[in-house]
Design a binder for these strands. Structure first.
Length: 291
DNA sequence: CACCATGTTCCTTG
DNA sequence: CCAAGGAACATGGT
């Protein structure tokens, strides 16, 4: 479930666990996730290096390390793709089926596993330089949004997924933010008026902040579950409700009643991806706007 | 077998 | 050059 909030929760979780730990060995099981970095270069760079910091930028994790015989720090860039997970596990535990990279840190392993291998763990930081502003920072202002969307005829939902517009929003929170803002996902981006832009900015920030706060209160567990599911966040005790699903208002709720008006949630496809919204709570804006 | 899935990048078309 | 749309990537769930 990796959009900005999930990555933020993961970063906060991992930070104290890896700080000051030294990489004793580097195992690359799927070179694809290294991108342009070769396994040899990764090993050469990381072997003997020590984790000194972990931050997030959009959906990316930025590991900062001090390597031996190097003037400046090394930045290792991670991305979870759709199904990636990063966690520590005991070294004696078996590796998951889709382990992509394993860093040995003394008694524990730092494991990057990814079923579909869409994720990344690389020394190539170029992707980060192309990202738009952080939605929770001051740079993400109504003025910025207004300028950035002024000439776009693309549907607002599709624009929100563009990481160069704003970094970190994915398919789930794009739908959730538009529902909260009462704006139709189909509205052309340049058609939003100032009032709508203000509501959208606020809704984006609220939805992301709440998800972070919520994720942070759920007990984290990782690694070696008995059934081997290896949950590392948004874990839940057996039989407990799945809070992650329950707190979403429209995503994956086609046909279910809208929490606000009771009407049926609708699913449409935009840019080859599902969008969920409430026609009654979000459509009027569209009609009013297109008149 | 069909369709769907939290993401990004590359290629084509206009 | 840019905007927009779609396929590809790889695996698993229903």
């Amino acid at each position: 479930m990796p959009e900005l909030p999930e990555v933020e929760v993961l970063v906060r979780h991992l930070q104290p666990l890896i700080r000051n730990k030294t990489i004793r060995s580097v195992r690359v099981l799927r070179a694809k996730v290294l991108g342009n970095t070769s396994p040899a270069e990764l090993k050469r760079t990381l072997l003997g290096a020590r984790f000194v910091g972990l931050t997030r930028r959009g959906k990316y994790l930025c590991f900062k390390l001090h390597a031996r015989r190097r003037a400046g720090p090394v930045i290792l860039v991670g991305h979870l793709g759709m199904t990636g997970r990063m966690y520590l596990s005991r070294r004696r535990d078996a590796l998951p089926k889709h382990a992509a990279v394993v860093l040995e840190l003394g008694r524990e392993n730092f494991v990057f596993e990814d079923t579909r291998y869409f994720g990344r763990l690389t020394l190539d930081g170029r992707a980060i330089t192309r990202l738009g502003p952080e939605p929770l920072a001051d740079g993400f202002s109504v003025g910025y949004l207004s300028t950035a969307l002024a000439r776009s005829t693309q549907a607002i939902k599709v624009r929100l997924l563009d990481q160069t517009l704003v970094a970190g929003i994915g398919n789930i929170y794009a739908s959730e933010a538009l529902f909260r803002a009462g704006i139709s996902p189909r509205l052309p981006a340049r058609g939003l008026n100032t009032k709508q832009l203000r509501r959208l900015r606020r809704a984006i920030r609220e939805v992301l902040r709440e998800a972070i706060r919520f994720g942070s209160t759920v007990p984290l567990h990782h690694g070696h579950a008995a059934d081997g599911d290896g949950l590392f966040y948004f874990g839940r005790a057996a039989g407990a409700p799945d809070y992650y699903e329950e707190r979403l208002r429209v995503y994956d709720r086609e046909g279910q009643p809208c929490a606000r008006c009771g009407g049926a949630i609708r699913r449409i496809v935009q840019a080859a991806r599902s969008t969920f919204y409430c026609p009654r709570c979000q459509e009027q804006t569209e009609k009013r706007q297109t008149r």
